[in-house]
Amino acid sequence: MDIRQLEYFLAIVDHGGFNRAASALYVSQPSLSQAVQSLERDLGTALFHRIGRRAVLTEAGTALIEPAREAVRSMATARSSVAAVHELRTGRLDIASMPSPAVEPLTSMIRAFSSRHPGVSVIIRAAFTQQDVIDMVRTGSAELGLLTTPGPLSDKDVVSHPVGEQGFVLLTPPDGPFPADKPVACEQLAGHRMIIVQRGTAARAYVDGLLERGIDLTIAAETEHRVSVLPMVLAGVGVAVVTDSWRGMAERAGAMVLDLEPNTVLRIVLTSRRAELSPAAKAFLTCAFTTDTEE
């Protein structure tokens, strides 16, 4: 068994099949298949059920995912430690982030980090809920995670690094139903069409809370694609509750951004795994807390 075989195995898992994994790795499918077959011989068991062109994990394959990630991450840490001697001239850092903090403060964090370590590539992994971020950091598919949470994190497998706070705002079209110079009371949303995002997010919990209070909202659209919220608002589909990190982008796009009353404060938290961090992850944390990341 070697680290390359484990990397190939994880690529098949992450990309959903041999063809996509081979394309992502820039290797031929026969080479990929041979490497996996060699790994299966070493382990004495099949890792995938081959069903036509599909590859479905066996029970043994599922059990291998987490130790394989740890082994690959440990090797990456070893390689990065060597690169650190050369002041992080090369390397890679995987960060899992929820959509809203990926707008800000992550953009400012990456700008600061890249200005100091331009040779290190930052890979942003999509995570739609707080638990998604924690799971990706805990299992090693990302080394750092950025999330928002209404309260303290209880997961014992990750380390929390508080970054700041943000609240919610209301996005409306420029000719929207509310005056531009006044906060919007939640009760004023009654009767209006609302664009909402998926369950498990703080913005969805805020809207669900309004419905539970008896505020009569009409759900115009529900989307898992957070990037579609602003275009739908500008197109007049409805109004939307989002975190304040969207303010600058929304205003530049022409939307009206209004404060909400009452509001909810969310904590912005960087998370890291409890194992030894790579030099790139350590450097990113240093940049995150020594650089002004105002929205």
Results as ranks from 00 to 15, higher is better:
Asn19Ile: 00
Asp216Tyr: 14
Val56Ile: 15
Glu261Ile: 02
Val103Phe: 08
Leu170Trp: 13
Ala280Lys: 10
Val158Asn: 08
Glu224Lys: 13
Ala142Arg: 08
Leu147Cys: 01
Pro101Ser: 02
Gly164Ala: 07
Glu276Asp: 05
Gly44Val: 02
Thr77Ser: 01
Ala203Gln: 00
Met109Cys: 14
Glu222Met: 14
Thr149Leu: 15
Gly61Glu: 14
Val242Phe: 05
Met109Pro: 05
Pro101Phe: 03
Glu187Arg: 15
Ser141Trp: 10
Ser115Ala: 15
Ala84Cys: 11
Ala240Leu: 07
Ser74Trp: 14
Met98Asp: 09
Ser278Asn: 12
Glu187Asp: 15
Glu66Trp: 02
Gly16Asp: 09
Phe178Met: 10
Ile219Gly: 12
Arg193Val: 08
Arg50Val: 15
Ala281Leu: 11
Asp94Glu: 13
Ala46Thr: 03
Arg73Lys: 06
Asp181Glu: 14
Arg73Met: 09
Ala76Asn: 07
Asp157Val: 03
Thr201Phe: 12
Gly238Val: 06
Ala255Val: 10
Thr172Gly: 04
Ala220Val: 02
Phe18Asn: 00
Met232Ile: 03
Thr271Lys: 03
Ser278Cys: 02
Pro179Asp: 06
Gly44His: 08
Thr139Pro: 00
Glu295Ile: 10
Val265Ala: 10
Arg138Glu: 02
Met98Ser: 11
Ile51Cys: 03
Arg213Thr: 08
Pro30Leu: 10
Pro67Gln: 11
Leu230Glu: 01
Thr172Ala: 09
Thr58Lys: 11
Ile51Pro: 01
Ser31Thr: 15
Glu224Asn: 05
Leu270Cys: 04
Ser154Gly: 02
Asp155Val: 14
Arg247Tyr: 01
Asp2Met: 05
Leu88Pro: 09
Ala253Val: 02
Asp42Pro: 11
Ala275Glu: 07
Gly214Trp: 09
Gly191Tyr: 11
Arg193Tyr: 13
Tyr206Ile: 03
Glu276Phe: 07
Leu230Ser: 00
Leu6Met: 10
Arg213Glu: 06
Asp155Lys: 13
Asp181Pro: 12
Gln198Asn: 01
Gly140Ser: 00
Asp181Thr: 10
Ala84Thr: 06
Leu270Glu: 00
Val85Ala: 07
Thr223Cys: 04
Leu10Arg: 12
Pro279Cys: 03
Leu217Val: 12
Ala275Leu: 07
Val13Trp: 14
Arg111Val: 05
Phe289Ala: 08
Ala55Asn: 02
His161Gly: 10
Gln29Phe: 11
Gly191Ile: 12
Gly236Met: 10
Asp132His: 15
Leu10Gln: 00
Ala71Leu: 01
Val82Ala: 08
Glu104Gln: 09
Leu266Thr: 05
Glu143Ile: 08
Ser23Phe: 12
Ile124Thr: 12
Asn19Tyr: 12
Ser33Gly: 07
Val229Gln: 14
Ser74Thr: 14
Glu70Asn: 13
Glu143Arg: 01
Cys186Trp: 04
Arg50Gln: 14
Gly52Asp: 02
Pro30Asp: 07
Glu66Phe: 00
Glu59Met: 06
Met249Phe: 05
Phe48Met: 05
Val13Thr: 05
Phe284Ser: 13
Thr218Ser: 09
Leu211Met: 15
Ala205Gly: 07
Glu143Thr: 08
Ala275Pro: 13
Ala83Arg: 03
